[in-house]
Structures are given as C-alpha cells and as structure tokens.
Design a protein around this nucleic acid. Sequence first.
DNA 1: TTTATATTTGGCTGTTTTGCCAAAAATACT
DNA 2: AGTATTTTTGGCAAAACAGCCAAATATAAA
Lengths: 112, 112
Amino acid sequence: MNPETQHYYEGRAAIIKAIAHPSRLFIVEELSKGERCVNELTAEIGTDMSTVSKHLSILKNAGIIGDRKSGTSIYYYLKTPCILNFLGCLEEVIECNMKQQGEILMACRSRK
Amino acid sequence: MNPETQHYYEGRAAIIKAIAHPSRLFIVEELSKGERCVNELTAEIGTDMSTVSKHLSILKNAGIIGDRKSGTSIYYYLKTPCILNFLGCLEEVIECNMKQQGEILMACRSRK
DNA sequence: TTTATATTTGGCTGTTTTGCCAAAAATACT
DNA sequence: AGTATTTTTGGCAAAACAGCCAAATATAAA
C-alpha cells in the first residue's frame, strides 16, 4: 500500500474505531433520540463519569457528535445522523450470521 | 446498562471493531471486487503474511468474510456485501467533517 | 518420499485502549 | 467570597491489539 492509500484507510478506520465500543455505540443510539448531557448518559451506562466523558471526547474528535453548553451542563448531540444507516446495516450482518449459524446447527442435527 | 443491553452492544461493537483497522478496511474493499487469496492481499498490503492472515481470521470470526480452499491457496470472499453500504455512509461523515472544518477555516480568515 | 508453495499458529515485544481514582476547571447559587 | 454541581484532565494499572519472526500444517508436484 502506498502512503496515500495508507492514509486514506487510516482516516476511515479512525472514524469506525470511534464507534467500535459498546458504550460509544450506546451513546450514538441514545443521542439519535435527542441530545443528552454527560450526567444522563453516565446514569444510563453505569461506569464512572470520567470514563463516559472520555468516550464522548473520542466521538467528538471523530466528528460524530457535537456539544452545546447550557449552565453547568454540556449537552451532546449527533452531528452526523447518517451514522444510523451504518448501524442499520449492522443488523443485516448479524442476521446473516445468525442464519448461517442456524444452518450449521441444522446440519449437525441431521447428521446424528 | 443491564446485562442484556450490555450484551447487545458488545455483539454489535465486536463486528464494528473487526473492520476498524486500515488493513482490514482495505481487505473488505478489495474483496468487494472479487475473491482474493492471502498471497495476493499480502502483496498489496505490504505487511508480513502472518499479519494479513490474522486480519483475515478476525474478519472471518466476525462473519464478514468467508473462505474457500483451492489447491494450496485459500480464497477469501465477502460474505455480507451490505458492509459496503456501511462504508458508503462513512464518506458522508467524512464529507460532513470536511465541510465543517472548511467553515471554521473561513471564520478564522474573516476575523483577520 | 522429498521438495516447493501457501497459509496458519505460537510466541514475543511494543503500543494502544480502558476504566478507575483524585484533582482541576467551569458555572450557578447564596 | 464560598459552596454545590457538572464536566474534564492527568495519571496509573490491567487488558487488548499489532506486527514480526520462526515453526507448524497442508497441499501439490517431482
């Protein structure tokens, strides 16, 4: 891979990496319903608030979410809602996997 | 997050994590053009063949690619081509980011 | 059976990621 | 100013990841 191509794929991988974590995935889906502050997200996720804050900063750096100050709270919102198509496609992959696992199971049974 | 929800997001994150790497992203795009053997992919990527082999096994475990033996070669193919919609949406995110960076740049300039 | 080719596995090292804690920063209230 | 609330930052230890090498495995050809 030449350096340009390398760079191309690194940039894209960086964005995908940003959502490649259970809590961050949860945050994205949650924000798709409307903006939330760190407090609210922390209560729902159940880890330390500093951990949630760091997850948020990762998503923000990737350009997926944005934030808005209001009083002492900071509200985060989804900046690129098209990320949801992304997640929709995920379901297809999972469905495909499950279907195949089902087939393997059936094959095992019929061989008995 | 209750254990079920946790499990739900972990499963989805695992699939995303599988493609969250430059070489693996390259592999997916390459396989979208047709099946390839480890040899061919290694030549294009330029890392050790053992490294490429491990990337392939990660993608395979995630259910994204499958393999087919032919002589001493093993050909890998895309099992869930819908993963490409995924990548298409990525472009939207990147475009959105670039647009915004452009705006920031313009704002900086006009303030001079 | 030996040899060559293609791929995977095991193991090692360095890097990155995660998540907790404590401390700092920012804002609003008294 | 002092206090409470919300969020971020810095630092640390454990875990996961990446890439190289050498060795093992599998298949085909001589």
